[in-house]
Design a protein around this nucleic acid. Structure first.
Length: 728
RNA sequence: GGGCGAUUAGCUCAGUUGGCUAGAGCAGUCCGUUUACACCGGAAAGGUCGGGGGUUCAAGUCCCUCACCGCCCACCA
């Protein structure tokens, strides 16, 4: 027996060595597994793409949980003999990374526009590289058996090729278009953002009721009087008896020096019970009003610019920030005796996810993906939709989930998904930032070239970049070499499992389904496993600014990666948030030590390296072995259903409370008392077999300690990582 | 306004398709260091499974309802 078992288990001394050993073996790469004969060439493939962490900094416990779940599943399938591929990578996370670097530069007094596009991007790339390196180290520390030879980045050359190909096809199918529309403008980030990047905040606001002028017949209500300089209509409900006589009339008004031409229109969307039942329509500065303007053919009048400042002919507010203009306007209304009422109300205000700025709706020329337009599907492996069939992107997204071609775990998120699609508007994909995939469109004298670089200086490329989720949406197949027809793509797509957080179901999961079904006529993955958020001990969301974020590396240093992994897995079902508990991690460190000591005892009692199966096993031993096999059968089924929260607990329970507490104690007695040589041999064989099989069964969950023990026991250069799952 | 989740031992949480005396970690009580393990073992204690109603031979588990907490979505300005 090795002397190392005489001391308590010390994860720090073994983990990095074991990871090196795995990397040297190249068994993370399925091609090597086939070459070395541990996986058969015609084995069933099993693939997962790692949700690429943003290169904005370091990994948090949520990532640790994600890596633990995926690695456990991948290791299980590898041990079952499948051709197993887990692709790692990172995400450039356009807005998030750019915002982060801008903040860092500002500390040195540097601004992005002073640097210029090229120099600024060099700064961002340097930051991204550093962040990438840290992330890579962390992924390794968790024991993740990803195939590093296939690592990808959402902004590298191969992924750019995919982005261009996707953009081109969508443009040619009329699904990508450029148009001036009212969009969500982030005045702080100086870019448009999509509907999904808006975060609503509840705030107190005043609802003002007033008339534009003394001779205007209808009072209107608004929380934003300053936008009224841009009004082109007043809308009332068609059935509202109070205003029938005015419908269709137009009023010319002097509103604090601004000439307004207000049409009275009828629109179903006006709520007669709210305020006066009359709505001042500001088509250029409200999404709702814009839609109303389109329906009623109203003119747009922009009075607020990109810096959230007024641009009016009214001297009263021109050049002021919107908040100042609001105060001025209300003062003016009061002086003119036009203000009828003001009251405090609660209001949902739109803010930008990344910068926190209040969104200013503005009319702007942007690129969009049309989600409702019908087109002919070019390729299809989808059940229920044939090649050439007319569908919309919305319908594709709905169909593959409602027809169970994609299963979402837990199931309740399917409902959330469908609801999102029902409310989905066209996806704004252009951004006025520098970091990201530049829009693959080139202009020259009014001509446009789409998707392919003309490589000619007389053409100018579009200044904007793409929404970061555009490239992420291609991830399941861009990582496999698409648009090239690679062997990897043919073998590993669709992927088997997508494991990610429920908070990005719209941003990412839905967009991947959109792109994959549209471009390939294939689902991107068969199962979506959504994990919850890791919160702090009190249930608060972890964040760096609050200072309650826990670094997984600290936990690994203290307790070992195996303990951290187990603590993230046991009892944590899909979709439920977990509160961080250091006690829980500590408990699994003790478990690792328990495994260590039980091994020591078994080795002491079974000194021969290879214990032969005795001619006859004691009845009791037979029962022990059968008990474990029964458990294994149960566990194997649950693993296939991704119920890791049950399996991990059951393995823990069996090892400690059956094997250590009962079986070892029983065998110990029989070996020490040695009633008969036959019975002793039977007990020894049982101990050894149960230990070995449990090491195998525990390996996907606690890969380091199990491999370390395996390496110590076996001198034949075999590795636990590619040993066979012990179910007979 | 709509939808969803949670409510189980002092604390943090499991409980798989309804089925034997409801589990784990931590905290806490008593005993134990005769050789696997004090990062331990043994024993005891602790729960009207949020309230109420219903279905069933049987409910923490299914249905209805109420309460409280939390999350997501939404064009009442």
């Amino acid at each position: 027996m090795s002397d190392k078992f005489l001391k308590p288990y010390e994860p720090k001394e073994v983990e990095s060595n074991i990871y090196d050993l795995w990397q040297k073996s190249n068994f993370f790469n399925p091609d090597i597994c086939v070459r070395e004969g541990v996986t058969s060439a015609d084995a069933e493939p099993f693939s997962i793409v790692l949700p690429p962490p943003n290169v904005t900094g370091v990994l948090h416990l949520g990532h640790a949980s994600m890596l633990a779940i995926q690695d456990t599943i991948i290791r299980f399938e590898r041990m079952r003999g499948k051709k197993t591929l887990w692709i790692p990578g990172t995400d450039h996370a356009a807005i998030a990374t750019q915002t982060k670097v801008e903040k860092l530069l500002l500390k040195d007094g540097k601004r992005k526009h002073d640097l210029g596009r090229e120099a600024f991007l060099a700064e961002v790339n340097a930051f991204a590289q550093e962040s990438h390196d840290t992330i890579t180290t962390q992924i390794k520390a968790m024991g993740a058996s990803v195939d590093w030879s296939r690592e990808a980045f959402t902004l590298d050359a191969q992924r750019e090729k995919a982005v261009h190909a996707a953009f081109k096809k969508m443009y040619e199918d009329g699904l990508i278009y450029r148009k001036e529309k009212v969009i969500n403008w982030d005045p702080k980030g100086q870019t448009v953002i999509s509907d999904d990047e808006i975060v609503y905040e509840t705030r107190k606001a005043f609802l003002y009721t007033f008339k534009y002028s003394t001779d205007f017949p209808i009072a209107i209500s608004t929380t934003r009087p300053e936008t009224k300089f841009g009004d082109t209509a007043v809308a009332v409900h068609p059935d509202d008896t109070r205003y029938q006589t005015y419908i269709g009339q137009t009023f010319d008004i002097d509103f604090a020096g601004e000439k307004l031409s207000i049409q009275i229109i009828a629109d179903e969307h006006v709520e007669p019970e709210f305020g006066t039942g009359a709505l001042g329509v500001t088509p250029a500065h409200s999404q709702v009003d814009y839609d109303m303007a389109i329906r009623n053919d109203l003119p747009l009048k922009q009075v607020i610019n990109e810096y959230a400042k007024m641009q009016t002919t009214s001297e009263l507010v021109n050049g002021l920030k919107v908040e100042e203009a609001r105060i001025k306007t209300v003062e003016w209304l009061r002086e003119q005796n036009l203000l009828v009422d003001e009251k405090e109300i609660e209001q949902n205000i739109s803010t930008a996810e990344r910068t926190g700025a209040i969104i200013e709706p503005l009319p702007k020329l942007q690129w969009f993906v049309d989600v409702t337009k019908k087109f002919k599907l070019a390729k299809s492996n989808l059940k229920g939709i044939s090649v050439g069939q007319e569908v919309s992107l919305k319908e594709l997204m709905q169909h593959v989930v409602s027809s169970d071609q994609i299963e979402i775990l837990p199931d309740r998120f399917s409902k959330t998904y469908f609801h999102w699609i029902d409310n989905l508007r066209d996806w704004c994909i252009s951004r006025q930032i520098w970091y990201g995939h530049r829009i693959p469109v080139w202009y020259k004298d009014g001509a446009m070239q789409i998707g392919e670089n003309p490589n000619d200086d007389s053409w100018t490329q579009d200044e904007d970049t793409l929404d970061t989720w555009f490239s992420s949406a291609l991830w399941t197949f861009s990582t496999l070499g698409w648009p090239d027809e690679t062997a990897d793509f043919k073998t590993y797509h669709p992927t088997n499992l997508l494991e990610t957080g429920y908070d990005i179901i719209f941003f990412w999961v839905a967009r991947m389904i959109l792109m994959s079904t549209y471009l390939l006529g294939e689902i991107p993955f068969k199962t979506v496993y959504l994990h919850g958020l890791v919160r702090d001990a009190k249930g608060k969301k972890m964040s760096k600014s609050i200072g309650n974020a826990v670094d997984p590396i600290d936990m690994i240093e203290k307790y070992g990666a195996d303990a951290l992994r187990m603590s993230m897995l046991v009892g944590t079902g899909p979709g439920s948030d977990v509160n961080f508990s250091e006690d829980k991690i500590r408990a699994y460190k003790k478990f690792a030590n328990k495994i260590w000591n039980a091994t020591r005892f078994v080795l002491e009692q079974t000194s021969d390296e290879n214990i032969e199966k005795p001619a006859s096993l004691a009845t009791q031993d037979q029962a022990y072995l059968e008990e474990f096999q029964t458990l294994l059968a149960e566990i194997t089924k649950e693993m296939e259903e991704y119920k890791l929260y049950l399996v991990s607990e059951k393995l823990y329970h069996f090892f400690w409370h059956r094997f250590a507490d009962v079986i070892i104690e029983d065998c110990k007695k029989r070996i020490v008392e040695s009633v008969s040589e036959e019975d002793k041999k039977s007990a020894q064989y049982t101990l050894r077999t149960l230990l070995t099989d449990q090491l195998k069964a525990l390996h996907p969950f606690m890969p380091f300690i199990t491999e370390e023990i395996w390496q110590t026991i076996h001198k034949d250069n075999t590795m636990l990582i590619v040993s066979r799952w012990p179910l007979q």
